[in-house]
């Protein structure tokens, strides 16, 4: 079972990113679950979402304590939340950042999802949309296939710019 923890702030799309990822994995023929961990629903508060992907049906509902992959959609959270907590020794970190971030162990990758979203003018209520470009980055990391990632995006969103942003993130992320 591959376990992913997504850190974001309320309103940034972390919860939707988790759903998209689960849908993409599902379209790859895998079993997947996505679960947000909520407090009260308020914008700007740190939010954690969990995604599990497996070849077998998934019966686990508890939180992910030892993730294989940590995704950080807003690196400012790293000042207040230990996003690396419990990360497996061979785990991966994917950061939304134009530059490498200090203090990140394991295999740390970064891609400027915000920049990609802004380049596509993917902005809702003043905030760049990160949940669709991140799917492209995850396809590059190999969590899901690119066709399934794009299919999942198309199933949930009609605006083709989301697909373009995912493709751009796939291109830009360096492995």
């Amino acid at each position: 079972m591959y376990e992913i923890r997504i850190h974001s702030r309320g309103g940034q799309g972390g919860v939707t990113a988790a759903k998209l990822l689960a849908l993409a994995a599902f379209r790859d023929g895998k079993h997947a679950t996505a679960c947000p961990f909520y407090g009260a629903e308020r914008r700007g508060a740190p939010v954690v979402s969990f995604v599990r992907i497996d070849d077998e049906p998934i019966k686990v509902y508890s939180q992910i304590h030892e993730p294989d992959l940590v995704i950080v959609l807003d690196t400012s959270i790293m000042d207040v939340v230990d996003v690396l907590d419990g990360l497996k020794a061979d785990g991966t970190v994917l950061l939304n950042s134009a530059h490498p971030v200090a203090g990140c162990n394991g295999t740390c990758r970064h891609v400027d999802l915000t920049g990609i979203a802004l380049a596509q003018n993917l902005v809702v209520a003043g905030s760049p949309i990160l949940n669709t470009p991140v799917l492209g980055a995850l396809a590059k990391v190999g969590i899901v296939t690119l066709p399934s990632a794009l299919q999942a995006i198309r199933e949930m969103f009609s605006d083709e710019r989301n697909v373009k942003a995912a493709e751009a993130a796939y291109e830009e992320l360096k492995i």
Binding site: A18, A22, L23, A34, C35, Y38, Y61
Partner: peptide, 12 residues
């Protein structure tokens, strides 16, 4: 159904 644990989880 269990609040959040099931109400908000995404499954097939």
């Amino acid at each position: 159904l269990d609040g959040f644990t099931l109400s908000h989880i995404t499954q097939s």
